[in-house]
Simulated assay, not measured.
Amino acid sequence: MADLKYYDIILKPVVTEKSMEVMADRKYTFLVHPEATKTQVKEAVEKMFEGTKVEKVNTMNNIGKVKRRGMTFGKTAKTKKAIVKLTEGSKEIDFFEGM
């Protein structure tokens, strides 16, 4: 496995209706590096967003879909999504405040 730094782990936040609804329960959704583990995701969130304490991390792997363009077949990239739950005494993630 590659040597991943904390700033390489979290790629971007996921902004969907469902992810916005679970923010009320202090759960935030991110696209993460496909080789990242749960402990690496936890450390990355705590280092990138000061004052946050992670209680739990749930991850899911999405396989790439087969797409066709004319007679040519290809495959989209595989992705990994992480849902991070913060503790009660933790500070909110400021990135999502205006959404």
Rank of each mutant, 00 (worst) to 15 (best):
1 M>F: 12
3 D>Q: 14
3 D>Y: 08
4 L>D: 00
4 L>S: 06
5 K>A: 08
7 Y>E: 04
8 D>Y: 08
9 I>L: 09
10 I>D: 00
10 I>H: 01
10 I>T: 00
11 L>W: 02
14 V>L: 14
14 V>G: 14
16 T>L: 10
16 T>D: 08
17 E>A: 07
17 E>L: 04
17 E>H: 06
18 K>R: 15
18 K>V: 11
18 K>S: 14
18 K>H: 12
19 S>P: 15
20 M>K: 14
20 M>T: 13
21 E>L: 10
21 E>Y: 10
21 E>G: 09
21 E>M: 11
22 V>F: 03
22 V>W: 03
23 M>T: 06
23 M>K: 06
24 A>W: 09
26 R>C: 08
28 Y>Q: 10
28 Y>M: 11
30 F>K: 04
31 L>W: 07
31 L>R: 06
31 L>P: 03
32 V>G: 00
33 H>S: 07
35 E>A: 11
35 E>W: 06
35 E>Q: 13
35 E>M: 12
36 A>V: 14
36 A>S: 13
36 A>W: 12
37 T>Y: 03
37 T>I: 15
38 K>M: 01
38 K>Y: 01
39 T>N: 11
39 T>Q: 13
40 Q>E: 10
42 K>M: 06
42 K>A: 07
44 A>D: 00
45 V>K: 09
46 E>F: 04
46 E>V: 05
47 K>T: 01
48 M>F: 00
48 M>E: 01
50 E>N: 10
52 T>Q: 10
52 T>N: 11
53 K>N: 11
53 K>I: 13
54 V>Y: 07
55 E>K: 15
55 E>G: 13
55 E>M: 14
55 E>F: 15
56 K>A: 15
57 V>Q: 10
58 N>D: 07
58 N>A: 10
58 N>E: 12
60 M>Q: 09
60 M>L: 11
61 N>F: 00
61 N>V: 00
61 N>R: 00
62 N>A: 12
62 N>I: 14
62 N>S: 15
62 N>E: 15
63 I>H: 06
64 G>N: 07
65 K>V: 02
65 K>T: 04
65 K>C: 02
66 V>H: 03
66 V>A: 06
66 V>W: 05
68 R>Y: 03
68 R>W: 07
69 R>D: 13
69 R>A: 12
70 G>M: 06
70 G>V: 08
71 M>Q: 14
71 M>W: 12
71 M>H: 14
72 T>F: 09
72 T>V: 05
72 T>E: 08
73 F>P: 01
73 F>Q: 11
74 G>P: 08
74 G>M: 08
74 G>R: 13
75 K>P: 10
75 K>H: 06
76 T>G: 09
76 T>A: 09
78 K>W: 02
79 T>P: 00
80 K>L: 15
82 A>F: 05
83 I>L: 12
83 I>Q: 14
84 V>A: 00
85 K>W: 09
85 K>R: 11
86 L>Y: 12
86 L>F: 15
88 E>T: 04
88 E>I: 06
89 G>P: 01
90 S>Q: 01
90 S>I: 00
91 K>M: 01
92 E>P: 12
93 I>C: 04
93 I>L: 04
93 I>E: 07
94 D>E: 13
95 F>S: 01
95 F>T: 04
95 F>I: 08
98 G>Y: 08
